Computed example of a mutant assay.
Amino acid sequence: MTQKVALVTGSARGIGLATAKLFIEQGWCVAMIDRDGDELKSASADMSGAKPFVCDVSVPKQVDQMVDAVLSAFGRIDAVVNNAGVADFLPIEETDFAAWRRIMDTNLDGVFLVSQAAIPALKETKGAIVNIGSISGLRASTLRVAYGTSKAAVIHMTKQQAAELGEYGIRANCVCPGPVKTKLAMAVHSPEIISAYLDAMPLNRYGNETEIGEVITFLCSDKASFVTGQIIAADGGFENVGVGLPALRS
């Protein structure tokens, strides 16, 4: 059987890197995509079956060149994981248009561009798209006017993709992580915020990157062959009990 190939954006670190490692454990090859070339080279160095491709997903020409390079290297694409993302957490009045555009460029435009460029290859394999949203796209919170709006748009884009691409056998789903114990989160979440999150989540703990990756790889696999257009919150139950914690308001 021909080895399947996953294209994972934002895979130099965090959820993207954890997902790439899981794909390899499950017998896939992985095209690891990131704009941070040094970090990507380091992350992929010891990963047999993975190849790094430096690309800024917000730049159309780079995306087209990247997809062509992936196809030249692997000959096929069976799954696209749109994980690359950026964030600024600011009050609405302090979110200038440059910050708004920076977030939309990567979080929304990047998902559109990479998915669109990969459609011909996904038609050939009847492949899967998994977009990474956020619980901030499911429910409003403070300080997230740009980030939350970008992720809400990704959620709707997923539904559009599922509706339009299903006739080609392409499935599209969205995973919305809740609080995840990444280096970035631990650097910006104060003890007060961490305590508030833990109090609010039914599972009473942060998730980890591999737990999110397990959901992503499942949705890309044949085990999810009849699942499309779904929005799955991997969040310890947090979305069920709401957001907008007092500790996150300033």
Rank of each mutant, 00 (worst) to 15 (best):
29 C>N: 12
29 C>A: 13
29 C>P: 01
29 C>Q: 14
29 C>V: 06
29 C>G: 09
30 V>A: 13
30 V>T: 12
31 A>H: 02
31 A>Q: 02
31 A>G: 15
32 M>K: 00
33 I>L: 15
33 I>Q: 08
33 I>G: 12
34 D>V: 06
34 D>C: 09
34 D>R: 01
35 R>K: 12
35 R>T: 07
36 D>S: 14
36 D>M: 14
37 G>N: 06
37 G>R: 07
37 G>S: 13
38 D>M: 13
38 D>K: 13
39 E>K: 13
39 E>N: 08
39 E>F: 05
39 E>I: 05
40 L>W: 02
40 L>R: 00
40 L>V: 01
41 K>H: 12
41 K>V: 06
41 K>Y: 02
42 S>R: 15
42 S>N: 13
42 S>V: 13
43 A>I: 07
43 A>H: 08
43 A>Q: 06
44 S>G: 15
45 A>C: 06
45 A>Q: 11
46 D>I: 07
46 D>K: 14
46 D>S: 15
47 M>P: 01
47 M>S: 02
47 M>N: 01
47 M>F: 05
47 M>Y: 04
48 S>P: 05
49 G>V: 06
50 A>L: 04
50 A>R: 02
50 A>E: 04
50 A>T: 03
51 K>S: 11
51 K>A: 13
51 K>R: 13
52 P>F: 11
52 P>V: 07
52 P>H: 05
53 F>Y: 01
54 V>C: 05
54 V>D: 03
55 C>A: 14
55 C>M: 14
56 D>C: 02
56 D>Q: 03
56 D>W: 02
56 D>A: 05
56 D>T: 04
57 V>S: 08
57 V>D: 09
57 V>F: 06
57 V>Q: 08
57 V>N: 08
58 S>P: 06
58 S>D: 06
58 S>F: 03
59 V>D: 15
59 V>A: 11
60 P>A: 03
60 P>Q: 05
61 K>L: 10
61 K>Y: 07
62 Q>S: 10
62 Q>M: 11
